[in-house]
Design a protein around this nucleic acid. Structure first.
Lengths: 324, 324
DNA sequence: TTGTAGGCGTTATCAT
DNA sequence: ATGATAACGCCTACAA
């Protein structure tokens, strides 16, 4: 900046102003400064800027897994919106573990991010304490609660599970098989589905659970295991479209007809879901919208703009297709 | 640090040393310092550290799209390895455009990253100039070349295309349909496949190209379009397993048998590929390995450790399954 | 093993 | 509209 200023015939401070608040600088000096920047190939140093201004223009974003489309979609939109506001994103994985999350939060805070995005509403006590101590806006995504750390945006997994059960029972299915991944939110949907389905039909669902994430392989295996456990007719409730797709494939491999022999209900409305055979009935959550609104809300909090509510419910919607 | 030092009865510098190079501090003062840190809840400020040391411990990583499993897998492993070495990752998307890439590089450089990961080996002149000017290690992934900006790691797309053609012709297929996404590397594979296939069989492949990325939907559509263009028997070469999966589904929907009526050859060996009906023949590139080695190579370059070669070829392998 | 001094490249505050 | 000066919180000499 010093050098740029010298070439433009102004002081270093004026260069700083030209960059951060151009209208405070006269038109002609602004031009000279821009020429000097061009000439020197000057690149601003945001590290120094962050130290001096105490605003890093950095956002930390923690998601369980970036290979999971659910979170990748979210991050894609989050990052792109946030970049439009001049922020950069530090991304890290937490792998569905609260301890891991706490460790990651701890190292991230040393970057002095202006805000932080967390997945879910359950965090370790140590994690909450550190966040509170940092005094920065926090947005929790993919869930809702009355008492967010700061702001949360998502939908009610309990309601989603119930709604799926009402749909299933309403379509007349009397038996259910649940095939679910082991993450905490999927399990909450499973539990509310199970209790609602049992209440409406009198029959508790058979359950096949996986510790790890959803894959087509586990979906295929899930149907096999479900059949071994005695499931025959009815509806299969999956914690994700990927599992559901695997189930469709396994059903086909076994010569079982969907939905005549068994119906399949996915979750997530992934981009392939309208194009499976048969097309998949699923629950849609607008992930792009979620990512965008999360970014907007977080920036609003950081820049002290008013936010109408601390808890944003983006809802969900059952999309009926041929698999049920 | 000042405060922590005061409580521990040492100066600020000693606290800094205790954190960065504990063995330079005596055991008992180290203990007092750790106690003081515990007591005060001190969180180091890496922004200040970066400014003073001129090492940000930040790596910028630019990929075309994080929702594409190909890049998500790569980044997952890259980030996790790099985190083990004390670095954080600034991630951004470039969307397959050189202009976009240049814009992103420009803003990223103001963070003074210690190193940068780029996808591919084709970059705008301005981008290259900025990178050279920054004087930081650069790793280019997913491709190889004799003249990387700094270090590259990947495989030869031309060889991959040729190998696929040799495999296809070797299996006796006389006609080929290519269904490909529009990214630059996929197109290079397509071209070398086409010329090699034509050379071996005398028949130029029919081509169906998409500007946008690979999806199951485009795969289904790709087969339909290919049939309209007159493709009947032979092999379908896809630029990704996702397209191939779509083709398998469309074939099934039309009552076409794979591989009897037509064979399908994917690319990428995604986790679902062994579990499609029929299981997919594809080309495997070890993406986890690629991400890890990219991280290791970049850290080695940053920390001035010797690197045996500037151009690392991780190769690829055709995995034969039931679809061919 | 520990401490002192100076500087990293900005922004904020106050003058002019 | 522009400039001088003092932080920002740490690290790198160098000295003790």
């Amino acid at each position: 900046m010093e050098t740029v200023g010298r070439i433009a015939g102004v002081s270093q401070v004026t260069v700083s102003r030209a960059l951060n608040d151009p209208k405070k600088v006269s038109a002609k000096t602004l031009q000279r400064i821009q020429d000097a920047i061009e000439l020197t190939g000057y690149v601003p140093n945001m590290v120094a800027g962050a130290l001096a201004s105490r605003r890093s223009k950095l956002i930390a974003a923690l998601v369980p897994s970036i290979t999971n489309v659910i979170y990748a979609d979210l991050m894609q939109n989050f990052i792109n919106v946030i970049r439009g506001s001049g922020y950069h994103v530090l991304m890290a994985e937490t792998g569905f573990s609260q301890d891991e999350e706490q460790a990651v939060v701890s190292t991230m805070l040393s970057r002095r991010p202006d805000g932080i995005l967390l997945t879910g509403i359950h965090h370790s006590a140590g994690c909450k304490r550190m966040l509170l101590g940092a005094g920065i806006p926090v947005i929790e995504v993919w869930d809702t609660t009355e008492n967010p750390l700061d702001v949360c945006i998502g939908f009610s997994h309990i309601k989603a599970g119930e709604e799926m059960a009402r749909y299933a029972a309403g379509k007349g299915y009397q038996q259910a098989l649940i095939v679910s991944a082991g993450d905490e939110r999927a399990l909450r949907r499973k539990d509310s589905f199970a209790s609602q389905f049992k209440q409406m039909t009198g029959n508790p669902p058979i359950e096949v659970l996986y510790e790890a994430g959803a894959t087509i392989e586990r979906g295929r295996n899930g149907l096999s295991t479900g059949l071994e456990k005695g499931f025959r007719n009815g509806i299969i409730m999956c914690s994700s479209d990927l599992l559901a797709h695997g189930i469709l494939i396994e059903a086909q491999a076994r010569g079982l007809r969907v939905p005549q022999d068994m119906a399949v209900l996915g979750f997530g409305n992934q981009d392939f879901s309208p194009f499976t055979l048969p097309a998949l009935t699923t629950v849609e959550v607008n992930r792009a919208n979620l990512g965008r609104r999360a970014a907007e809300a977080l920036v609003a909090r950081i820049e002290n703009e008013p936010l109408p509510t601390k808890s944003i419910d983006v809802g969900f919607e059952i999309i009926e297709r041929a698999s049920t």
